[in-house]
Design a protein around this nucleic acid. Structure first.
Lengths: 396, 396
DNA sequence: GCTATTTGTTAATCGGTTGAACTTATTGTG
DNA sequence: CACAATAAGTTCAACCGATTAACAAATAGC
């Protein structure tokens, strides 16, 4: 029960409905929106006019249409409307992306920097610099920014635990917005896997419910149910890396035994495959090397990936049994390895998910590749603009 | 994006807001609602009047209050307003309950009947008879009915799989509403654990996010996140009984290996404890016998419960890691055994849930005992009335 | 050029909230 | 006991946004 509704709420809600209609059926027209939503043409006209004035929607030339009658003026989301800025801090790179209202990626920059051992303030200064660059280059008005971090995030802007960065109970948003380069923008922070899942939701289109499994140094997950991200009570959902695979398995650095991370974490896979990792070789190169070995039918690599795939499948099956989702999406460093993983995941899922008989589960690699989190972060900002357009119109 | 909002939607929404205010702060007054919601006293008056006319809210005598000024007329949810009828089919009993708007259980009847081997039509005729009796005895207007079934339920009114009843792809709502005794009421059907979780939510009060684990012949679960039930894409969430505990464990009747049900299902526990079960002894008596043995420190019973508790804890920890919930509630036949289970569950959860350090997880028995599902089913109907009161007002 | 058809706009009306004045019922005070 | 002070609830004009119906604009077909 979220507060009372005033007259204004009505208008704000319908504004969002109309805007969503433009997004869903591009290009469309006032008349089509009216038919499709049930709102009067008069009402739709008034709302569309407000959206056009606010530069969220553009009127384009009339689409050629058979039959008689005055041609409709086309309506599309404005590619020059307020865009979203996505930022990402990961163990061995920093990234920034700008996504416009239509969902197009308008700018993408990745800087390979190993964060291990660097002072957080230094890292955040780099991020601010990336942000400033992105704003300059993209040449679009930015609605806001979202920062993806590989760890547990707590409101407002605290990183509770990012083991692979060595961060703990660290205020991130304060130093970031205080940096000299920082372009003055409202900024939020979220878990990397959550944002990647949102990115997948925006691009994959059809699927509305899935488990996005992100393989980085650890293993995280984002859960999308009926088109909405499940954040959990504190925003700490998706800690799939520490779900138990074997009660008496190897000890994990979290202190428990037999966590998924000990079977499908980057370190575990690389060790089992006999690929040198850690200090010796940057993570992305090690993963590429592993894919090469697997491609050449190296038995150790194949074995390592099959063990990881089975463990992933067992845990994914558990999540699907509990949450009844439609698909499992392999992302992060699992994406380039998906060819050797999906089969094993599929087998475990098919054998262990009770409802698989009525509704088969789709297992596939993510469609945005390894940049899902940054792009998803930018997309999350756009998503908010589209969900509450009245905030971007003078006089709310 | 759920459709456009007309002027009427505004009124309907605010009606629900006002009604919820009455529910939350009983007894309250028009003035307090106005202050608390931000709506004008004039608006609140109009809405309250509609609720009073519809018999959802009663005006009660003015509450004595210190200080000057005209005394407020108290407002409470009407105990004679539309009530909910809950029905339950389980393996060894049938049950009916009536819960009024205030949440009071006004009627409860349990019939010990073993359903195994009975024809579904016969069982449903009994349920219709229970419903008719409940309506007669309770003497309240009924808003609707909800039927709890131990299995997978599919819209509209199909039981996909209820292994312990031996039902599969069976239409339940058709025969039920066609029964001669059936009191003509809108009726829904839902999983037993889901409804029990809703019952727990309504009574436990404070907790807004928890995993409700229901031990019956199988093991099911209902998930409540931020006060809302998570149903999954098809409504098949909570199949916790078939989450893997050990990948190479004993074969389950679902075909997979090492399912939770093989460790914490009634059969498994009773077998390990050396208590005769199945045909020999009705389930509820067997559970009582087990509790007696455990109370007398019988080593086999204690061992069986500790093994079950550990398995439950491992699976619950997995769910908590993935979904970030606040509590684990043990229900169904786990409730009377909770004394011997919670400790083990707590230990596994504390050791395996990554965020337990920041936000400790509460493990406890359910507060409604073994009747949670029927009462929860009735409460679910009430919940819907409270959420959309306009449907109960002439001219919606 | 005329009609049929569809799009988009304009002006009057309706439904529901707001804000301010007003009535009602009580406490406190001289 | 009369009278101010205070708070609850009601009444009514004003306002805001959606609806309704009429109207202007732009095209196809004849």
């Amino acid at each position: 029960m979220d507060g009372p509704a005033r007259q204004r709420s009505l208008w704000q809600h319908n504004l969002a409905v109309v805007l969503d209609e433009v997004r869903a059926a591009t290009p469309t027209s006032r008349a089509r929106i009216s038919q499709h939503t049930g709102l009067t043409r008069a009402t739709v006209s008034a709302l569309v006019d407000a959206l056009v004035r606010a530069r969220l929607v553009d009127e384009v030339g009339p689409a050629p249409r058979g039959g008689a009658g005055r041609p409709a003026t086309g309506l599309v989301l404005s590619p020059s409307g307020p865009a979203g800025l996505g930022l990402e801090i990961n163990v061995d790179y920093l990234a920034a992306a700008v996504v416009d209202l239509t969902g197009q990626v308008r700018h993408l920059e990745v800087r390979q920097v190993d964060q291990r051992g660097r002072a957080p303030a230094e890292v955040l200064a780099d991020v601010a610099d990336l942000a400033a660059g992105a704003r300059r280059v993209a040449g679009l008005p930015l609605a806001g920014a979202r920062l993806a971090v590989p760890g547990l995030v707590d409101a407002p802007g605290l990183v509770r635990l990012a083991p692979n960065l060595g961060w703990r109970d660290l205020d991130v948003l304060g130093p970031l917005t205080a940096a000299p380069d920082w372009p003055d923008l409202p900024v939020g922070i979220d878990n990397e896997a959550n944002l990647a899942a949102l990115g997948e939701l925006a691009t994959a289109g059809r699927e509305r419910s899935f488990l996005y499994v992100s393989g980085e140094v650890g293993v995280g997950a984002g859960i999308v149910l009926d088109g909405a991200l499940l954040r959990g009570t504190h925003g700490w959902s998706g800690e799939i890396g520490h779900v138990t695979v074997a009660a008496d398995g190897p000890v994990c650095r979290c202190g428990a035994r037999g966590c998924l991370e000990q079977y499908a974490g980057q370190e575990a896979i690389l060790r089992a495959a006999g690929v040198p990792a850690g200090e010796a070789l940057p993570a992305d190169l090690a993963v590429r090397r592993l894919a090469e070995l697997a491609g050449a039918d190296d038995p150790a690599a194949i074995g390592a990936l099959s063990a990881a795939g089975r463990a992933l499948g067992i845990v994914a099956a558990g999540v699907l049994n509990v949450l009844d989702l439609d698909a499992v999406v392999l992302g992060g460093s699992f994406a380039p390895l998906a060819g050797w993983l999906t089969g094993h995941v599929e087998r475990e899922v098919a054998g262990r998910v009770l409802t698989a008989a009525w509704s088969p589960v789709c297992v596939r690699a993510c469609s945005l590749g390894t940049r899902a989190a940054v792009v998803g972060a930018a997309g999350a900002v756009v998503r908010e603009v589209l969900a509450a357009p009245s905030a971007w119109i003078d006089g709310g």
